[in-house]
Protein backbone atom coordinates (compact mmCIF):
# COMPACT_ATOMS: atom_id res chain seq x y z
CA UNK A 1 0.00 0.00 0.00
CA UNK A 2 1.65 3.19 -1.12
CA UNK A 3 0.75 6.09 1.04
CA UNK A 4 1.23 9.65 0.07
CA UNK A 5 0.57 10.79 3.56
CA UNK A 6 2.89 13.43 4.79
CA UNK A 7 3.86 12.11 8.20
CA UNK A 8 3.52 14.71 10.94
CA UNK A 9 6.49 15.41 13.21
CA UNK A 10 4.84 13.35 15.96
CA UNK A 11 5.19 10.22 13.86
CA UNK A 12 8.95 10.27 14.47
CA UNK A 13 8.57 11.19 18.14
CA UNK A 14 8.70 7.98 20.22
CA UNK A 15 6.34 9.18 23.01
CA UNK A 16 3.66 9.51 20.31
CA UNK A 17 3.29 5.72 20.45
CA UNK A 18 2.75 5.60 24.21
CA UNK A 19 -0.55 6.80 25.59
CA UNK A 20 0.36 9.78 27.78
CA UNK A 21 -0.96 9.82 31.35
CA UNK A 22 -0.81 13.59 31.69
CA UNK A 23 -4.26 14.88 30.81
CA UNK A 24 -3.37 17.92 28.76
CA UNK A 25 -0.62 16.07 26.95
CA UNK A 26 -2.94 13.20 26.19
CA UNK A 27 -5.52 15.48 24.64
CA UNK A 28 -2.87 16.89 22.30
CA UNK A 29 -1.58 13.42 21.52
CA UNK A 30 -5.01 12.00 20.71
CA UNK A 31 -5.89 15.00 18.57
CA UNK A 32 -2.72 14.43 16.59
CA UNK A 33 -3.53 10.74 16.21
CA UNK A 34 -7.08 11.44 15.07
CA UNK A 35 -5.87 13.83 12.42
CA UNK A 36 -3.22 11.40 11.25
CA UNK A 37 -5.61 8.43 11.06
CA UNK A 38 -8.24 10.36 9.10
CA UNK A 39 -5.63 11.80 6.78
CA UNK A 40 -4.11 8.39 6.18
CA UNK A 41 -7.44 6.67 5.60
CA UNK A 42 -8.59 9.45 3.28
CA UNK A 43 -5.47 9.25 1.15
CA UNK A 44 -5.49 5.46 1.02
CA UNK A 45 -9.29 5.16 0.84
CA UNK A 46 -9.41 2.89 3.86
CA UNK A 47 -12.85 2.60 5.36
CA UNK A 48 -12.32 -0.01 8.00
CA UNK A 49 -9.67 -0.87 10.56
CA UNK A 50 -9.36 -4.17 12.35
CA UNK A 51 -7.53 -3.93 15.66
CA UNK A 52 -6.09 -7.39 15.09
CA UNK A 53 -4.42 -6.36 11.87
CA UNK A 54 -2.97 -3.00 12.78
CA UNK A 55 0.58 -4.27 13.21
CA UNK A 56 1.06 -4.47 9.44
CA UNK A 57 -0.10 -0.93 8.85
CA UNK A 58 2.67 1.61 8.54
CA UNK A 59 0.22 4.04 10.11
CA UNK A 60 0.60 2.43 13.50
CA UNK A 61 4.14 1.13 13.20
CA UNK A 62 7.14 3.31 12.60
CA UNK A 63 9.87 0.87 11.72
CA UNK A 64 12.48 3.64 11.62
CA UNK A 65 12.20 4.28 15.37
CA UNK A 66 10.94 0.79 16.14
CA UNK A 67 7.70 1.89 17.76
CA UNK A 68 4.19 0.45 17.45
CA UNK A 69 0.99 1.83 18.86
CA UNK A 70 -0.53 -0.60 21.32
CA UNK A 71 -4.00 -1.79 20.33
CA UNK A 72 -5.29 -0.71 23.76
CA UNK A 73 -4.09 2.82 23.04
CA UNK A 74 -5.57 2.65 19.56
CA UNK A 75 -8.91 1.67 21.05
CA UNK A 76 -8.89 4.81 23.15
CA UNK A 77 -8.17 6.88 20.05
CA UNK A 78 -10.91 5.10 18.05
CA UNK A 79 -13.39 5.82 20.82
CA UNK A 80 -12.45 9.46 20.57
CA UNK A 81 -13.03 9.24 16.80
CA UNK A 82 -16.42 7.72 17.48
CA UNK A 83 -17.30 10.70 19.68
CA UNK A 84 -16.64 13.05 16.80
CA UNK A 85 -18.58 10.85 14.36
CA UNK A 86 -15.53 9.66 12.43
CA UNK A 87 -15.65 6.00 13.44
CA UNK A 88 -18.16 3.35 14.41
CA UNK A 89 -17.47 -0.08 15.90
CA UNK A 90 -18.70 -2.89 13.67
CA UNK A 91 -18.85 -5.63 16.32
CA UNK A 92 -19.50 -5.90 20.02
CA UNK A 93 -15.90 -6.71 20.82
CA UNK A 94 -14.90 -3.37 19.25
CA UNK A 95 -12.31 -5.07 17.09
CA UNK A 96 -13.52 -3.91 13.68
CA UNK A 97 -14.12 -0.26 13.10
CA UNK A 98 -15.51 1.71 10.20
CA UNK A 99 -13.58 4.89 9.64
CA UNK A 100 -15.06 8.00 8.02
CA UNK A 101 -12.44 10.51 7.02
CA UNK A 102 -15.35 12.90 6.80
CA UNK A 103 -18.33 12.45 9.04
CA UNK A 104 -21.42 11.09 7.32
CA UNK A 105 -22.99 14.55 7.47
CA UNK A 106 -19.96 16.15 5.89
CA UNK A 107 -19.95 13.51 3.16
CA UNK A 108 -23.62 13.99 2.47
CA UNK A 109 -23.03 17.71 2.03
CA UNK A 110 -20.05 17.10 -0.24
CA UNK A 111 -21.94 14.63 -2.41
CA UNK A 112 -25.01 16.77 -2.67
CA UNK A 113 -22.89 19.73 -3.66
CA UNK A 114 -21.18 17.64 -6.33
CA UNK A 115 -24.48 16.41 -7.74
CA UNK A 116 -25.82 19.95 -7.84
CA UNK A 117 -22.68 21.21 -9.51
CA UNK A 118 -22.75 18.47 -12.12
CA UNK A 119 -26.40 19.14 -12.94
CA UNK A 120 -27.40 15.62 -12.07
CA UNK A 121 -30.45 16.39 -9.99
CA UNK A 122 -33.57 14.37 -10.77
CA UNK A 123 -31.43 11.80 -12.57
CA UNK A 124 -30.86 8.22 -11.55
CA UNK A 125 -27.20 7.59 -10.92
CA UNK A 126 -25.59 4.30 -9.99
CA UNK A 127 -23.51 4.15 -6.90
CA UNK A 128 -20.72 2.59 -8.89
CA UNK A 129 -20.43 5.61 -11.18
CA UNK A 130 -20.55 7.96 -8.21
CA UNK A 131 -17.66 6.26 -6.45
CA UNK A 132 -15.54 4.54 -9.09
CA UNK A 133 -15.79 6.50 -12.33
CA UNK A 134 -13.04 8.78 -13.52
CA UNK A 135 -15.37 11.76 -13.30
CA UNK A 136 -15.19 11.69 -9.52
CA UNK A 137 -11.48 10.84 -9.27
CA UNK A 138 -10.73 14.15 -7.62
CA UNK A 139 -13.66 14.10 -5.24
CA UNK A 140 -13.40 13.28 -1.58
CA UNK A 141 -15.83 10.40 -1.87
CA UNK A 142 -13.94 8.72 -4.71
CA UNK A 143 -13.52 5.01 -3.97
CA UNK A 144 -15.64 5.32 -0.87
CA UNK A 145 -16.75 1.91 0.32
CA UNK A 146 -20.28 1.26 -1.02
CA UNK A 147 -21.62 0.33 2.41
CA UNK A 148 -20.40 3.65 3.76
CA UNK A 149 -21.67 5.41 0.70
CA UNK A 150 -25.15 4.02 1.23
CA UNK A 151 -25.03 5.19 4.84
CA UNK A 152 -24.23 8.66 3.58
CA UNK A 153 -27.12 8.53 1.15
CA UNK A 154 -29.42 7.41 3.92
CA UNK A 155 -28.59 10.66 5.68
CA UNK A 156 -29.62 12.58 2.56
CA UNK A 157 -32.71 10.44 2.18
CA UNK A 158 -33.83 11.51 5.64
CA UNK A 159 -33.72 15.12 4.50
CA UNK A 160 -35.67 14.12 1.38
CA UNK A 161 -32.78 15.11 -0.83
CA UNK A 162 -32.48 11.74 -2.57
CA UNK A 163 -34.07 8.37 -2.94
CA UNK A 164 -32.21 5.13 -2.91
CA UNK A 165 -33.09 2.49 -5.46
CA UNK A 166 -31.68 -0.78 -4.15
CA UNK A 167 -32.17 -3.71 -6.50
CA UNK A 168 -30.49 -7.05 -6.16
CA UNK A 169 -27.82 -6.51 -8.77
CA UNK A 170 -27.66 -2.76 -9.10
CA UNK A 171 -27.78 0.10 -6.68
CA UNK A 172 -28.92 3.49 -7.87
CA UNK A 173 -29.88 6.80 -6.40
CA UNK A 174 -31.92 9.76 -7.53
CA UNK A 175 -31.25 13.20 -6.11
CA UNK A 176 -33.84 15.89 -5.74
Amino acid sequence: MSSEVEWPWQYNFPPFFTLQPHKETRVKQITAWKALILDYCGVNKICSIDLRETNEMSLFTNAAINRTLESSALLVILEELQNSGNAIPMDKQRQRWEIYWHTLEEFSQIIYNYVMNSNSLDMVLTIFELTESDDVANEEFYKLNSDVFIKVLRVLEKDNKCELILLEDSQGVKFF
Partner: peptide
Protein backbone atom coordinates in the same frame (compact mmCIF):
# COMPACT_ATOMS: atom_id res chain seq x y z
CA UNK B 1 7.98 16.51 35.70
CA UNK B 2 5.52 14.47 33.66
CA UNK B 3 2.78 15.33 36.12
CA UNK B 4 3.59 18.99 35.58
CA UNK B 5 3.26 18.45 31.84
CA UNK B 6 6.95 19.17 31.31
CA UNK B 7 7.80 15.79 29.87
CA UNK B 8 6.17 12.87 28.16
CA UNK B 9 6.90 9.19 28.27
CA UNK B 10 7.94 6.56 25.78
CA UNK B 11 7.12 3.13 27.16
CA UNK B 12 8.62 0.49 24.90
CA UNK B 13 10.39 -2.83 25.22
CA UNK B 14 13.57 -0.82 25.69
CA UNK B 15 12.19 0.57 28.95
CA UNK B 16 10.64 3.79 30.10
CA UNK B 17 12.19 6.92 28.59
CA UNK B 18 11.16 10.49 28.96
CA UNK B 19 11.19 13.19 26.30
CA UNK B 20 10.54 16.91 26.42
CA UNK B 21 6.82 17.42 26.10
CA UNK B 22 6.78 18.40 22.44
CA UNK B 23 3.02 17.80 22.31
CA UNK B 24 2.52 20.93 24.37
CA UNK B 25 5.66 22.79 23.29
CA UNK B 26 5.32 22.60 19.52
CA UNK B 27 1.67 23.54 19.12
Amino acid sequence: SERCGKSCRDDSIEGLRFYPNLFLLRD
